[in-house]
Design a protein around this nucleic acid. Structure first.
Lengths: 197, 197
DNA sequence: TTTCCGACTGAGTGCTCAGTCAGTTTTTTC
DNA sequence: GAAAAAACTGACTGAGCACTCAGTCGGAAA
């Protein structure tokens, strides 16, 4: 990590929370300045404009997520692919809690709108989703080798499982249902969906 | 349907598209006026403010969705609960295509932010989600009666299936993956997840 | 024909916003 | 400790915003 001035770090942190919770358009630079104790000019000294601030946040989010998953998965050993799958699901939910604001940001549409026209945004998102889906996919492939997981299409089933888990996080973010109450049912459903026979 | 002036209907239609695709804050009243050929004043003649315009759209969306599902499900007969479940999934995806803008609107966070403080918004959303989830639930209960669906918790499993199907729609809206390519895998996954034994 | 009314108009209003800039303060370098 | 560089400041600007209002318009009722 390159060293960074206190103010710049404070701006990044506060902007992450504000963009995630209030949205990009609904967050004003003066509000952000007020929250960090920095002057408005300071924000534009560190970031050339509002959009570049968002890109910096997205890029940092990508780095964090990739790092967390690599660190967590390296130190683990699994008896079966099915066990690994369950572990990945649990860790995804854990991380979504720990990096609450970043995950909320990833559920905001303005990110994907920008990604349509700006490749810098799209690349970050593709890295994140690719890392996550590939993890699910690896568990399935491994489960098929050791017989704990049935004859499904690895990549496509990984996407379906990802959809389920991420949908639960979204429910929680949107305050629709209590994701925790569905946790056991989710694990059980994934097992039923993937098990051999 | 009460009769409505041409301009008012045009405003509602254009606003649905704009709010869904550009967001609430990012859609300006002058832009909306320009798109409909109406003067800005006309919008405020029909709707007392921007937020009330959004509420009118959400309410109309609720009415449409409930009506569509009731109409479709009344005219159907199913051999088994599992068959009904598959039918409901297919129809959900069909409707999400037919009412593309409304479904996209339902995936926008600003709706849920408003729902937190404004009961008028929350009631509409609860009606929509309750209708949809209950439909999945009914299929599960029926499948458990006729033996085509295994011993799962109906409401919670209905929520999980809803999460899967809605997640697919979201993927499509966000241009991340082609939802169509996952369709067969989705149906197969739901079957594996719910089948008895 | 006159009167009335709902639909519609668009220039105007006050406000908020992203971004600028000339200058000040703090930190680093030698 | 002087000079240079980096960090920071906040008043300012012009553009865009939601919303208002005094008034126009066309058709239907009287």
């Amino acid at each position: 990590m390159t060293k960074m001035s206190k103010k710049k770090a404070a701006i990044l942190e506060a902007a992450t929370v504000l963009f995630a919770n209030k949205g990009f358009a609904d967050t004003s630079m003066s509000e952000l300045a007020g929250m960090t104790g920095a002057a408005e000019g300071t924000i534009f000294y560190h970031f050339k404009n509002k959009e570049q601030l968002l890109l910096t946040i997205l890029s940092a989010t990508r780095d964090s997520i990739l790092e967390e998953f690599n660190a967590h998965m390296e130190e683990r050993e699994f008896k079966t692919g099915m066990e690994m799958m369950e572990e990945v699901v649990v860790f995804y939910l854990l991380l979504a809690g720990r990096m609450e604001h970043q995950f909320l940001l990833l559920h905001r549409l303005f990110i994907y709108q920008l990604a349509e026209s700006r490749t810098e945004f799209r690349e970050n998102l593709e890295d994140i989703y690719n890392c996550l889906v590939t993890l699910f996919e690896q568990a399935i492939v491994r489960g098929q080798e050791d017989g704990s997981i049935g004859d499904v299409k690895p990549r496509k089933s990984a996407l379906i499982v990802f959809t389920m888990v991420d949908g639960l996080v979204r429910f929680k973010n949107f305050n629709l249902y209590d994701a925790g109450a569905l946790f056991n049912e989710l694990i059980e459903s994934v097992r039923r969906m993937l098990k051999s026979n």
